[in-house]
Simulated assay, not measured.
Amino acid sequence: MLAVFPGLDTPALLFFAFAVLLLAGFVKGVIGLGLPTISVGLLGLVLAPLEAAALLLIPNLVTNLWQLLIGPDLRGLIRRLWPMLAGIVVGTLLAAAWFPLGGAAWATPLLGLALFVYAGLGLLAIQLAVPARQEGWAGPLVGLSTGAVTILTGVFVLPAVPYLQGLRLQRDDLVQALGLSFQISTLALAAALLWQGDFRMPQAGASLLALLPALGGMLLGQALRSRIGALAFRRAFFGGLLLLGGYLMLKALL
C-alpha cells in the first residue's frame, strides 16, 4: 500500500521506509520529538518532502495526540499559546495557496537547510529567551513562519521549537506544548493537502499503515528511555540531522 508513493515502489524501498518510521518513532519515544523531522528528512532521499509529510500525517496525529493529552495543563497551554497556534494555521494555508505542494525543485534543498539549522541550534545548545511581554507579537509571527516552513519543507520544527524552548516552560509543560504545536501543524498540513487533492484514500491508507512501525518504535523508545543517556542521545540525534541536512543541500547542487 505504501507503493502509492512513486518513490516507494520496490520491496527494498518499502523496507527502507519501514526502518525509517521505526527509528523515528523510537527517537520520539526517548526524547519526545523527532518523528516528522527524522522521517521526512530520511524519506526525503527518495520522496518529495511533502509526499513524505503526507505519509506521516496519521502517525503524527496519533503520536502527538498521545503526547499532548498526557501533559499536566493542556487548557493553560492553549490559553497561552493560541496566538502562535492560530498563526500556524493561517501561515500553512496561505503558503499552500502561494507555493506548489512538494513539486518545486527547491523543496529538497530547503528541507536540508531547515534540518541543518535546527540541528546546529540543538548541538550548540542555543536557546532563546522570550519575555512574557513579547509573546503577544512574537507568537503569531512564529506561527506564521512555522506554517510557511511546513509547506516549503514538510517539517514544522522551525521556528516553533526554539520559540517554545525560549518560554522556559517546565519539562512536562514543554513536552506537552511541543505535542500541541506539532498537532496543530499536522492538522493544518492535512487541510492543505486535502484542499490541493494530494491526500486521498490511497495516501490515507498508506499513512495508516505507516502508523504501525512509528507507534511500535515510540513504545520501544519509551520503555528504554530510563536506560539511555539523554544528553548523548540528543547529541547523536542532532548530529545525524546535521549530516542529513548537509547531504540534502549538497545533493541538490551536484
Rank of each mutant, 00 (worst) to 15 (best):
M1G: 10
G7N: 04
G7K: 05
L8M: 06
A12I: 14
F16M: 11
F18N: 10
V20D: 04
A24M: 07
G25L: 07
F26C: 05
K28I: 03
V30L: 06
I31H: 02
P36F: 08
P36Q: 09
L43H: 05
G44H: 08
A48N: 08
E51P: 00
A54D: 09
I58Y: 13
P59I: 08
L61H: 03
V62H: 04
W66L: 10
G71P: 09
W82H: 15
W82V: 14
V90A: 15
F99E: 06
L110E: 02
L110I: 04
L111I: 03
G112C: 09
L113T: 02
Y118S: 05
L121Y: 11
G122R: 06
G122L: 11
A132M: 08
A132K: 15
G136N: 04
P140K: 05
S145W: 03
T146W: 06
F156M: 12
P159W: 15
P162M: 14
Q170V: 04
D173K: 15
Q176D: 08
Q176I: 00
A191V: 05
A192L: 02
L194Q: 05
G197L: 05
A206I: 02
L208K: 00
L215I: 15
M218Q: 13
M218W: 09
L219W: 14
R225S: 03
R225F: 03
R227A: 13
G229C: 07
A230T: 13
R234Q: 15
G239A: 04
L241V: 07
L241E: 08
L242Y: 07
G246L: 10
G246W: 07
G246S: 05
L248N: 09
